[in-house]
Design a protein around this nucleic acid. Sequence first.
DNA 1: CTGAAAGCGCTAACAA
DNA 2: TTGTTAGCGCTTTCAG
Lengths: 350, 350
Amino acid sequence: MQARVPRNDDYLERMRTKSTKPKNSIEEVAKLAGVSITTVSRVINKLPTVTEENRRKVEDAVRKLRFSPSPFAQALAKGKTSGIGLVIPRYEGLFYSFYALELIRGIGTLCDVFKMDLLLHLSDGRSNFNAKSVAGVIFADIITNRSQLEWALRENIPCVVINNYVSDLEVSSISIDNVQGAKEAVKYLIGLGHKKIAHITGDLISQAANQRLEGYKLGIQEAKIKENPDYIIKTDYSRGQARVATEKLLNLSEPPTAIFVASDSMALETVTVIMEKGKKVPGDISIIGFDDNPTSLYGHVALTTVRQPLIRMGEEAVKELNSLIKGKKDITRMVLPTELVVRESCKAIS
Amino acid sequence: MQARVPRNDDYLERMRTKSTKPKNSIEEVAKLAGVSITTVSRVINKLPTVTEENRRKVEDAVRKLRFSPSPFAQALAKGKTSGIGLVIPRYEGLFYSFYALELIRGIGTLCDVFKMDLLLHLSDGRSNFNAKSVAGVIFADIITNRSQLEWALRENIPCVVINNYVSDLEVSSISIDNVQGAKEAVKYLIGLGHKKIAHITGDLISQAANQRLEGYKLGIQEAKIKENPDYIIKTDYSRGQARVATEKLLNLSEPPTAIFVASDSMALETVTVIMEKGKKVPGDISIIGFDDNPTSLYGHVALTTVRQPLIRMGEEAVKELNSLIKGKKDITRMVLPTELVVRESCKAIS
DNA sequence: CTGAAAGCGCTAACAA
DNA sequence: TTGTTAGCGCTTTCAG
C-alpha cells in the first residue's frame, strides 16, 4: 500500500508522488474507462445495473491497471468484513497433534470457497482478536481460553467452537460423539469375546478424553462386566506415557486381552511395547485406537480405530459460522458421528 | 461491525439506530472524555504530545465504552496494514506432516509478539491474496505455487520463502542446510565403520529431498566409497513407500548395514519393517532419520536423527519479512544449520 | 499541546 | 442505467 499523500499536493509534489507510485484506485479505473467511479464500483461488485458495454470497458481498464480494490476501504464503506478468526490454543499437547492440522485443512479450504479471509490466532489465553476485524470466530477447542470465548460472546461476535460440546454457554458447537465412538469400540471388542478390556486415556483436561473414558465405562457396564480400576490408566496423550501405561498393564497379574487406547499415536506405541515384550498383536492382545490418523495404517499391524471426521468438523464450523454471520439467530450444537474402522489389530478371543 | 447508517438520519432514525447499536467510534470516546477526536487518536497511537490529564480521561472513556479502533479505518487512513499472509501449499504430502504445524507455531507466535495479523491461505496454486490486504507474505515452501510468488514479487509485495533456497529469484529465503545435515549423518555412519550405507529419499519434487540426497552422495564420495545405485530408493515421504523401500533394501543380495532415511516418520517405519524381519536396530542395521520429529523419541529405539530448526525457521521468516516491510532493501538468504542428534538407533560396526 | 478539517478508497442513497 | 455526493472511522497536516 502507498503512504498517505500530503495535503498540499502542488504540481511538483504530485509529479514526485506519481512517479514513485501511481494512485491505482478506483478513480484511475474510472478515468481510463471513461465512466464514473460508481459504475466501476458496480462492476466490481457484480451489480446487474450496468450496460454490457460499460462493463467491458471497466473490466478492460481493471486488467490494464492490474487493479484490485482495497479491502480496507471496502470493509469500511460496507460496514462489514469478510474475515473470520481461528483461535487455536497454544496448548502443546493439542497443537502438536494431527488434530490441529486436519482442522486447519478443513477450515482453510472452505474459507477459500466462501471467499473469506482466515485470520489465525495462536492463543496463549490472553491476547484477543480485535472484535472489529473479524465477522466471526472459530475456537478450536477451548482448553485454556474459555474467557476469550466468553468475551467474544459478550461482544456479540458470532462464534462457533469446535471439538467441544458446550452446553453451558449459548454458543454453536461442532463436536464429535466421543462417547458413542468409544462405546462402539469397546462393544466391538466385547463382540470379539474379550472381557478383560483396558483403557489408556488421553489427557483428561480435554473433554474428548473424558468422553472417551465415559464411553469405555458405558460399554463395559452394558455388557455387565465389572469395572476394574487397574484397567484404566491415565496419560497426557504422549507416546512416552503410553509406553509407561502399556508396561503397567502388561505387568498386571491378570493382564488385559484387549486395550482401547484414546489416540492412534499412543496406540502405535502400545503395539510397539507389546511386541517388544514378545507378545503379539492381535494374537495375544487386541488393540483399538481412536482418530484414524493416517499413520496408523502402517506399522506392524494396520490399526483398528475409530475415525473422527476432523476435516468435516472444520467445514461444518465454517458453514455454521457463515450462517450466524448472515444473521441466523438460533445456535446449533452439532455432534458428528464417528465410524469404526476395522483393520488388523483386533482378533476374536480363542 | 454495524451496518451503514442511511443518509437522511432524522431524529427518529437516529434514535432507532442508536437503540440498536451505539456508534462506538472514536467520536463517542472524544465526547465522553471531553476532548477532540484528534486527541483520542493521539492516545490510541501512543503519541507523546498529550497531557497526562487528557490521556487519563481518554483512557477512562475507552475503558468505559469498551472501545477498540476499527482496523479498517486505521489501515485506510494510515495507508498501511499490519497483516501478513502465510501461503501454505495444498500439497498433501507436505501439509500432512509435522513440518507445517511447527512452522505455523513459529510464525504464529512471533506474529503475536510483533502484533501482526496472520492471514492464512491454503493455496491450491491458483487463488491469491489481494495484494492490498497484506503488508507482506511468507511462502511455506514453493512446491506448486511458484507463479504466485512471482506475482507477489512483481506487485512489489515483500516476500520471504521458507524451506527453499531460492537462487534464481530476488527474494529472501530461510532454508535449512539439508546438504550439510545429510552429509553429517552419512559421515557419522561412516565414522561408525559403516560402508554399505543406503538412502531412502523423500519426494524429489521437493528441494529438501533433493538436497538430502545430494548430501548423502557427497558424504559417500568424500569417504571414497563407491556409490551403489541399488542403495538409493526413491519415495514420496509416505510410510507406505518407506515400507516398500526397506523391504527392497533388505532383499538385496548384499543388504546395507546402515540406512539414512529422509524423514523420521519414514525412519520409524523402516525400523518397524527391519524388526519384523527378525533383525535388530541398531544391532544388525543402523538407522538415522531426519527432522527430529518428537515422535521419533518413542518407539522401539529412540531414533538418531538430524534436527532441523523448524520453529526458528518460522521465526526468522517473520523477522525478515518485518524488516523488509519496514523498508530494508537488500534481500537475505539465510541457511539455518542442522544438528545431529545421537540417540540409540546407530551402532558401530563390529 | 490541541482541534478543525481534509483526506484514505470505496459504497450506496438519491436524483437525474 | 448512470453520476453526484455524503459518509464509513480513523490519521495527519496545519494553524492556533
